[in-house]
Amino acid sequence: MKIKKGGDPAVAIDMTPMIDIVFQLLSFFIFTLKITTQEGDFNITMPLAAPRAGTPDPNQVPPIKVRIRATADGSCNGIFLNPNDDGTGGTPFGTDGWKQLRAHIASLVGTGSQAASAEVTIDADYNLDYENVIKCITAVSGEKDAAGHITKMVEKIKFAPPRPPGG
C-alpha cells in the first residue's frame, strides 16, 4: 500500500488563555507584595517561682536593677541604676542616658562569661512608653559597632513586678 507522505501541518497554539492567566497571577503577586522591615526578638525569661536564696557565687556579677521613671505623658523622666527597694535613689543617667548606661553596664559586666551570667531587672513605671523599655534592653544587651558587628553583653533580662497605674 502506498502511504501518502504529507508534511506536518503547522499547529497554531492559541496562547491567549495562558497569557491571561499569567497576567492575573502576576497582578495577584504584585498587589499582595508587602514590603516589611526585618523584625527581631529580645528573649526574656520570667520564671514562675522566685529563685532560692543561697550562697551567692563570688564570680557572678550582683543583680543589676534599672529603674525607669515616666512623666505623665509616658516619656522617660529618668534612668536610675540600682535604686532602693522603694524605687527611689540610685545612680542617675538622665532622661536619654542610654549610651552612658550601656558604658556603665559594660564596665560592670564586661563582655565575657561574666556578662552572660549577669542579670538585669527592669523596673519601669506603669505608663512608661514601651519603646523606652526596648531602648533599655538594647542598651544593656549589647552594642553594634560601625562595621555592624554586635558585641553581646547581658543576656538575662527580666521585669520587676508591674507597678500599679499612676504609681
Binding site: 522591615t37 527581631g40 529580645f42 520570667m46 538594647t138
Partner: peptide, 10 residues
C-alpha cells in the same frame, strides 16, 4: 508560660 520574646523592628 515562662518564655517570652519582645519583638522590635530593625
Amino acid at each position: 508560660f515562662t518564655k517570652f520574646s519582645l519583638r522590635a523592628k530593625d
